[in-house]
Amino acid sequence: MNEIRISGFGGQGVIRCGYIIGRIAALYDDKHATLTQSFGPEARGSACSAQILVDAEPIRYPYLTQPDTVVAMSQEAYDKFGSDLVEGGLLLIDEDLVKPTPSDRERRMYAIPSTRIAEELGNRIAGNIVMLGFFTAIAGIVSVDAARKALPSSVPERFIDLNLAAFEKGYEYGVELLAKEPAAPARPKKAARKAPVKKAAKKSDK
């Protein structure tokens, strides 16, 4: 089982990015994928996130317990969600928007200027899809073939070309980054999944 958190600020399309990852896994990689997200006032403000569980087996407990993969596309999201990553877990960041703490520089961290790449393609809203390509290349949780099949029907029709280009840019960036490494990264190992120690329920005042 993979436990993934995609985070950033509202408007960056992080929920969409998470939705597409789940969709790729569930519909094109023949895996089970459960997506949850936070709703209400807390979902509209600064740090928002989507959580995706991906497994070959049916997923019972639907929420994230401890992520093995965290994508952070904003500083606040990084500060809020970066620390609960499992030991040896994978951290992906937008390097222009997130300044990692010195200790994190020692972790399995990969950085990409996803928003800048999207801007170079003509529209910063595709930053989430650049990150999706990057995630696909680095994390190895969804296959690139499945992602390419899923993408056209996962984004608005008028943005298909932009998003396909964004995906490929992000994907290439990731592949090149990995090629520079001496050895392929090992998948994180985790103890049996268990529901988290009871956390206070998320605040909501609606």
Binding site: G22, L27, H32, L35, T36, F39, P62
Partner: peptide
């Protein structure tokens, strides 16, 4: 319930 209502799956 909210969990099932807002949970996305195939």
């Amino acid at each position: 319930d909210e969990c099932v209502g807002h949970m996305t799956e195939k």
